[in-house]
C-alpha cells in the first residue's frame, strides 16, 4: 500500500476519532476519496482502529454502495427497480454479467467497465434502463447490449 493511501486513511481515522461508532463514515470516506474499499485498505483500517477485519468486511459486503475493486473507466448502472424488473431488467443484468464476465460491483480485466446494480433511475417509462456514465439507454434489448458496449471500446481505440 502506498504511503499516500496510508496518509489518507490515517487522516480519515483521525478526523472521525471523536464521534461515536464512526465505522460507516470511515468506509464511505475511503470509497469517496480512494474510489473503492479494497482488501489492503480494510486490513489497514482493522490494524489501526477498534474494528476487526471480519466486522468491516461484513459491513462492506452488506451495502451495495461499496466496491471492493477499483472502478473501471466507464460505470454501467443496471436498474433493478420494480418497473425495469417487470420488463426484463434481470435478463439485461445477466446478459451484461455474461458479456463482461463480472458480477455487479466488479470491474472488467481491461479496466474499461465496472458494473453496478442500482435501484430506480427515475425514468420507468423507458424501462428496462441502463446508464453508462452519464448517458441513459432506455428500452434496451439483450441483443443490443454488445453494440452499445462496442461503441465505448471503439471510442477507446480512437483515443
Amino acid at each position: 500500500m502506498e504511503a499516500k493511501d496510508k496518509f489518507i486513511i490515517d487522516t480519515i481515522l483521525d478526523t472521525y476519532s471523536n464521534i461515536d461508532d464512526p465505522q460507516l463514515v470511515i468506509l464511505q470516506n475511503i470509497q469517496e476519496i480512494l474510489g473503492y474499499v479494497g482488501e489492503e485498505y480494510l486490513t489497514y483500517v482493522s490494524e489501526n482502529s477498534e474494528y476487526s477485519l471480519t466486522e468491516l468486511y461484513g459491513v462492506v459486503s452488506f451495502y451495495p454502495q461499496f466496491r471492493f475493486d477499483p472502478p473501471g473507466k466507464h460505470t454501467i448502472k443496471v436498474c433493478s427497480g420494480t418497473a425495469c424488473h417487470v420488463r426484463g431488467g434481470s435478463g439485461i443484468a445477466q446478459e451484461l454479467e455474461d458479456i463482461l464476465e463480472i458480477k455487479p460491483g466488479g470491474t472488467t480485466k481491461d479496466g474499461l467497465f465496472s458494473l453496478e446494480s442500482v435501484r430506480c433511475l427515475g425514468c420507468c417509462g423507458l424501462s428496462p434502463v441502463i446508464m453508462i456514465d452519464e448517458e441513459t439507454y432506455g428500452r434496451v434489448k439483450k441483443g443490443g447490449l454488445q453494440k452499445i458496449l462496442d461503441s465505448y471500446k471503439t471510442e477507446e481505440v480512437a483515443e
Binding site: 482488501e39 480494510l42 476487526s52 477485519l53 471480519t54 466486522e55 468491516l56 468486511y57 461484513g58 459486503s61 452488506f62
Partner: peptide, 17 residues
C-alpha cells in the same frame, strides 16, 4: 475474528474476509 456474517438477504453467509 476469523469469521463473520457477510452479504445480505438471501446471499447472507458466514464467511472469512
Amino acid at each position: 475474528h476469523a469469521i463473520g456474517l457477510t452479504n445480505k438477504g438471501n446471499e447472507s453467509i458466514i464467511s472469512t474476509p
